[in-house]
Design a protein around this nucleic acid. Structure first.
Lengths: 118, 118
DNA sequence: TCCTTAGTTCTGAAATATAGAACTATTGAA
DNA sequence: TTCAATAGTTCTATATTTCAGAACTAAGGA
């Protein structure tokens, strides 16, 4: 069985769609990853998120989630040696979609913060 | 086979979640319905949306989409005679989640408007 | 060269969504 | 009152999508 590891596809900003973004955000794991990246000081590799919401994720599942975020145009992933480091495309997204993405991240972050307090 | 038509469930505003909203918005038909309702002057019944994005929807499918929007806390549906009229819960949503929902609707509307022009 | 770490791809199983058919609910006319 | 019409829901089988284990690729050391 021959399989080639395709290189990472990032859509150009003008091909990103609202539907694509909303689909990518529809999974609780993906919104958690994205919000975390959006609020992080620096890029993070995929394995950072192997534990999420107190559950352990198989790395194949995590890999799919990153691919979906990437192909929706939400994140940019770059190989750095043996790992993949990820950052959000927030600046481009703001340019194209206004405050939508930031609004989502902020609402999510506020909700999670409130949840913790209880 | 006995089946009872359960009455419409609307979650109280404090039980609405960001994840629930994002899941409801993840379907192109549902975001279209919601954006349309959000920009409408008045309530609309479900059948208004039997044709959407130039495709004909079976009413069973449409009914499911409305149920998902309703149970995510995005819309309020009320029986008016033989039909069901729907409005968004935008005011409550803004209260709880800030500009998130409006940001999504506006980005979607802008995208659709730009698409038409081409 | 071989080992280790990081992530991807493949694939069958599990979960979700779709849509036709049969149903309920309400109204209005005969 | 019954009957027909309209609007929407529920049931259920099928189709689609997602999940996760196993096998793989890719890069960096020892």
């Amino acid at each position: 069985m021959v399989s080639v590891m395709r290189s990472l596809y990032h859509p150009p900003v003008d091909q990103i769609t609202v539907e694509g973004i909303l689909h990518a955000f529809s999974d609780p794991i993906r919104i958690e990853i994205f919000a975390n990246l959006a609020m992080a000081e620096c890029a993070k590799n995929c394995s950072t998120f192997l534990t999420i919401h107190k559950q352990q994720l198989p790395k194949s599942t995590l890999s799919q989630h990153f691919r979906i975020l990437r192909e929706a145009g939400l994140i940019r992933s770059e190989r750095k040696g043996v790992e993949l480091v990820n950052v959000t495309r927030c600046a481009e997204l703001k340019q194209r979609f206004g405050p939508m993405v930031q609004g989502i991240v902020e609402a999510y972050a506020a909700q999670q913060k409130a949840k913790k307090k209880k």
